[in-house]
Structures are given as C-alpha cells and as structure tokens.
Design a protein around this nucleic acid. Structure first.
Lengths: 191, 191
DNA sequence: CGTCACGAAACGAACGTTCGTTTGGTATCG
DNA sequence: CGATACCAAACGAACGTTCGTTTCGTGACG
C-alpha cells in the first residue's frame, strides 16, 4: 500500500470521470478506486470541482502540444497528416483525460468553461490554418468551406475513443492514415 | 397553469437531461422546469430511470424511422444523401431527445443499455448497407473500408448538434449537402 | 341544467440514503 | 521534528422516493 500523490488522485479522477461522468462520480467512489477514504482526498485537493479542472486542463495541454508539433512539419499536407495522427495518439494514449476533456467540459464552473472553450477554439484554429495552407498550396479544392471541413475532421477524431479498440481489426497507424486519406479526398485532394 | 401529461414530463426530462446530464438532473430540478413539485412527477412515471428510458427510446425511434425512409429512395447515392439529410433533420428537429439518446445511454441500466446498443448497431448497419450498395454501383471506390466509412460519417452527423446553429452562417440544407459531398468525395465518389 | 362523484394531477412533508466537505486525531516519512 | 497522508467521525444539504391529502377536470345522473 503505497502513499499517493496529487497526480495519482487526478489520474484516478480522470478515469472515473471518463467512465461514470462527473456527476456520476462521488468522492467515496473515487476513494475506493484509489484505496483510500473519500475524505482523504481532501489532503491533496481542495474539492471535486478542482479535480475536474485539473483533469481537463491536463487534457487540453496534450492536445495543444500535439497541434504545435504538427505545425513544425514541412508542407501543409504533412501538417494535416501530423495533426490527425497526433490527435488520435493523444486520445488513445491519454484516453481517460481526453474523454473527460471532451465530454465533461459542460460541468465546469462557467468561468473555467469559458476559458476551456477559448482554448478549444484556438486548437480548432490550428486545423483551420493548416487546411487554409493546403488550399493555398493547391492540395485541396479552392471552393471548400474550411470551417466546416475542420469541424468534420474534429468530429471524426473526437469520437475515435468511443469505438476504437487497440486489439481490433484496424491498427492505430492504419486508422490515422485512413482518416487522413478520407479527409483529404473529401476536400478534393489526391493522396 | 395547465396540467401536464406524461409526454410533457418526458419532453421536459429530455431537455433537462440534454443540457445537464442524467446525474446532473434532480427530480426537483425537473419539477421546477415544469412548474410542479419534483414529487408530483411520480403521478406520471415510476421514477427517474424510467424517464431516461422513455427519452432515449423516443430518440432511437426517430433515427430508425429516418433510416427506413432513406432506404425507400431510388439509387444508392440517393439513399446516402437521404440518410445524411434524415439524420441531421432528426438531430435538429428533436435536439434534446437526440442529444440525450447520443450521450446519456451510458447511464441506462445494463439491460436497457444492451438493447439500445443493439438498436444503434442496427442503425449503423443501414448505413453500411447503403455504402456497400454505393460501392456495388460504382459510385464509390472498391477499396474503401465501409465499416470505417460508416463510423466517420456517423461521427460527423452525431456531433452536428454540438455546434450547428439554425441562425448561423450555414443553413441546414446546405450543411446536409456539404456533408454528403464531403463523405462521397472522401470515399472516392464524384458528386 | 346543475351537482355530485370519481380519477387524475399536484401538493407538502417526510423517509432513509448519499452527497461534498470539515474536523481532529494518528501514523509515516524526509 | 515538522510536514504529509490517511483515517474516523461527523456535518448540513441534497438526493430519489413515498405517503396522505388537496385540488382540478369531466362525465353521469337526478
């Protein structure tokens, strides 16, 4: 029975929030998962809402780091491929955090929610810029609605964790490639 | 102050579940929305879980009716277009129900959840069959992974209600058309 | 045509339970 | 020794639900 750190608590909260939802998780549930009493959690964090904030901010940082890395790639279509692969990797490497980030934002306090929404918009803008660059480089049709295209792409990406299984028919690398091809072709490109 | 029917209660529950989540909704909250006491809801339904079941089954039926109608269309690509338009129309015409159906299924009792999951698989099969037919008719590339394609398509469709605004830049009919084009091109078709 | 009876709908209070959180004590570790 | 991690017990509030009672709408009957 090792003693726990604050990060252990946050990680546990991420798992529980991802599977049972924020309001479906009690501090006692969370304590059970961690092998301590629910009340003992207050030795590490100020409260339940603070846990949600920590998990979601952690998720947001993963996505943003991935997007920044994608922008370092040479060539717009390469950036698009990297963005897609990066997003899928974040989701599958940090499943609980990512899921909580994607579906429990609504339970943040209004102030925090607004901040997170802003960060999400910024993340979407990364993709929009990449798609714009693709159009500029002639990789994509000139008449595509880039805003809609980014929404379609993120819709596909964000729901990956709802169905993908690491032990399934499709491998992770194949999926990234397939999504990339699908999006590119969908916008008039030829991979 | 009119008296309420069971359907009024279910509709109210759908709205509340869609915005605040199942566990984020108390019977008293729901009662407040409806202008009655939380306890008065028990004159209409057996309990909270029964409300969730009613809302979700209602949502499922809308989607299934839409899919069946799409299958009546002549020609595989026409069916695909009708399926997409139908799905978007259901989501936007029954936003609360649809949203609850899509994101609160996890809070159903295990038995009910299994049944709903089955219905959802059946719905996805409608789309798979349509896409298969498209391949057969030569509308789509022969090497597309139809299972993945159906997942991509449903991902785009299911998240529409998270961002679409009836008063926004893009009109509903344009959106349906644009998604149809995007999916068709993504799978190697030429609209 | 009025009224009376009956079922449905809503109230208001209370049930036992669970919630998030607080407090005070205790063991462990640097 | 001082700080940290945890336990144990308790707090008030809120939860889903039940219960007895009251109000309301409607259709049958005199």
């Amino acid at each position: 029975m090792k003693r726990l750190s604050k990060d252990d608590i946050i990680a546990g909260a991420g798992r529980r929030f991802a599977t049972h939802g924020y309001h479906g998780t009690s501090m006692r549930d969370l304590g059970d998962d961690l092998g301590i009493l629910g009340s003992s959690i207050y030795a590490h964090v100020g409260g339940k809402q603070e846990l949600l904030v920590a998990v979601i901010e952690g998720g947001a940082e993963h996505f943003e780091a991935s997007a920044r890395a994608a922008l370092d790639v040479e060539g717009a279509s390469g950036q698009l491929r990297a963005f897609i692969k990066g997003h899928i990797d974040v989701i599958l490497d940090h499943r609980a955090e990512a899921r909580t980030y994607l579906s429990e934002v609504g339970f943040l306090d209004p102030d925090r929610r607004a901040i997170v929404a802003q960060r999400r918009d910024r993340y979407e803008m990364y993709l929009v810029e990449i798609l714009d660059a693709c159009v500029l480089e002639g990789v994509l049709r000139k008449d595509v609605d880039v805003r809609l295209a980014s929404i379609y792409t993120l819709s596909i990406l964000n729901l990956v964790d709802r169905w993908f299984s690491e032990s399934g028919r499709v491998k992770r690398a194949e999926l990234s490639e397939d999504v990339y091809r699908f999006v590119l072709r969908g916008l008039g490109g030829t991979p």
